[in-house]
Design a protein around this nucleic acid. Structure first.
Lengths: 190, 190
DNA sequence: CTTGCCTATGAAACGAGTTGCATAGAGGAT
DNA sequence: ATCCTCTATGCAACTCGTTTCATAGGCAAG
């Protein structure tokens, strides 16, 4: 579906190898789109044979050679066409929410540690985003010197930050609810 | 994966047919887990043959007969085991975020209408959630009389509400950014 | 009385995503 | 020397999810 488009955007931002793309998908891009290296290698191959991207063998020293991919004219056109099509508003797949509702038929208290674990993961992600924002989008002159691409990267990052903050607040709410239930009184919140 | 578990939870909350499950997945459950009727029918079949759930033919008048599914003992055990395992913290697939970063290489202004459309969709979802909260979790009976299951359903719903509010605020941020760029304060990449 | 919509179920084909395995060069640690 | 880790690429098998099509009864509108 749209993995191709995510790769095109990433390669336009900076050409790179499949391995490098896989690492980007673990970092900045991976915050709103995940992909394994298997998927990436397979799709890259197809995109080359479709003429969307070009390959270039790059010899390296101290490490294996790599294939550097960059966007070709047809790929740019494909991306442009996609950008002008509507996409479905996202829908989430939230295992933890299923578990929370399922806990009603098991032991709600047993979920507390799991929710705390998720809380830590999201706190780490938030810290990571904030460090990235600090590094890339603050400092003297940042406000006036950003080009459109940087502005757009920043607004996506702000989305990630907002998402993590919202999630942390909700997980606090979940924990309070679970503890209230575990304490034996399913009494009202607030 | 976890579609089985989501179905088990839904059937524990209330037994029902594949068709009814599909409609629930468009409504309350579908806010954090999506599934088409095809997926549901296929998985139900497998779950029956694995002994996780029972079927019962129910004749209806004024409409076709249906098969009502309910959770059997082994299904309850499967769910219980899953509830005690850790799950991966969720990761999102956000096409719109890809588009926003991609817009740097095309026409950012052309995205405005698309973002406005997403804004309307999320505003509708929020209104829907708030109506559901009003209906199910407020009023004279609500305070103090909620059992654990209802409390847990409510905290999941509060998560949906928080998510939609956060998303709406972010989309406002995105719109402001796109308009600033379109007004010429930044120039697109070559 | 035909067209369209809602309930209700399902097959078949395809495309997307995951998991496990395999290879290979270079570096550092024991 | 051997093991582990990191870079770098890829195949094969499998599961999951989507799309398309098909069937069938009942209801309401025109």
């Amino acid at each position: 579906m749209a993995l191709e488009h995510a790769i095109l955007v990433s390669l336009l931002e900076k050409p790179g190898s499949g391995y490098e793309l896989a690492r980007r998908f673990e970092r900045s891009i991976g915050y709103f789109w995940t992909a394994t290296h298997q998927q990436i290698y397979r799709v890259l191959k197809r995109m080359v044979s479709d003429g969307w991207i070009d390959v270039r063998e790059v010899a390296q020293q101290g490490r294996p050679d790599k294939k550097e991919y960059s966007v070709a004219a047809p790929g740019r056109e494909v991306l442009s066409r996609w950008l002008h099509e509507p996409v479905e508003p996202e829908s989430i797949r939230h295992d933890l929410a299923v578990k929370i509702r399922g806990a009603a038929f098991d032991d709600p208290a047993a979920l507390i540690r799991e929710v705390e674990r998720h809380h830590r993961v999201h706190a780490d992600r938030l810290a990571h985003y904030l460090a990235g924002e600090q590094r890339d989008f603050t400092g003297p002159g940042a406000a006036g010197t950003l080009d459109a691409g940087q502005e757009l990267q920043h607004v996506v990052l702000r989305g990630g930050i907002a998402y993590e903050r919202m999630t942390l607040a909700w997980l606090d709410d979940v924990l309070a609810t679970l503890r209230r239930i575990a304490a034996g009184r399913s009494t009202p919140h607030q």
